[in-house]
Amino acid sequence: MNKNYVGSLAVFIAAQFCITPLFASKSHYGERFCSYETITCYKVKHGDSWHSLFPDSARRDLIQRFNRMNVRLRPGMKLAVPNELHTLSVMDISPFKPQIPNSGEKLIVVNLNVLAWGAYNEEGNLVHWGPLSGGKDWCPDVKRPCRTVTGTYSIKRKLGSSCKSSKYPIGKGGAPMPYCMFFFRGFALHGSPYVPGYNASHGCVRLFPEDARWINQEFVDPPSSPFGGTTIVVERS
């Protein structure tokens, strides 16, 4: 990969932690980087889909993660596409440090500002990351703010692919929450086909379904394990 491109990409990744917080915004995440020289913004046209634009599954996954969304494309949307897409891996575009101080325990970092989560193993190495959508500023159906709580918690309970909400939609419940992992009262990480590139939930942290399954089944320790539930840090910085 071109060294100048690597340097520009590093600046881009660092800038993600300095942007205006997105929890009050409905602009799609990738749009705010359209002015970067290393990025080309594509305006979605009628008939476009993720599969038609990016038939290669690995590149499609990278672009979805880069833009923090898996929702159906609509005409007029803008997608941020790295100019040297073919040279990049998912870990190349991670907004997280590749390593943190060794704590001897697994850690999940949820950053509501950069709309991303990162999973660190016991040695402090980043082993996976992905997009998210947290709680929005205001929920008309419950007439109150819905922001996701911040702080340090642990995964207290996890369920499988059939997990559903007991509260939403209001008055009925039953909204799918596959691979839910509860960390504080009714707040949970869970899979969703609606991660739109901004914070849009009632407070839970929506993840790509495949990421929720991976965290649930392959990363977090059961709450009953000798180590207790895996630690999760939720932040907006």
Rank of each mutant, 00 (worst) to 15 (best):
N125P: 01
L126S: 13
P98L: 09
T40S: 09
I100G: 04
E123P: 01
E84K: 08
V71D: 06
R60N: 11
M77R: 03
L115F: 09
P98N: 15
H128G: 03
P98I: 01
K45M: 13
V71N: 04
V71E: 12
S49I: 09
S35F: 08
L88R: 01
Y120Q: 04
K97D: 06
D61V: 11
P21F: 10
T38D: 12
H28M: 15
E31D: 14
V81E: 01
P101D: 04
C41R: 02
Y36K: 06
C18G: 02
S52F: 01
F66I: 04
N125I: 12
E122N: 10
S89P: 03
S57E: 15
R65I: 04
N113S: 08
H128Y: 09
S35N: 14
F96R: 08
G118I: 08
N111L: 11
I108K: 07
W117L: 05
K78I: 01
Y36P: 00
M91N: 03
K106Q: 11
I93A: 07
Y42D: 06
M69N: 14
L112N: 06
R74A: 11
G76S: 14
Y29A: 07
C34F: 08
V81W: 01
Y42F: 14
R72A: 00
P98A: 00
S35P: 02
E37A: 11
A119D: 01
P95F: 02
V71W: 00
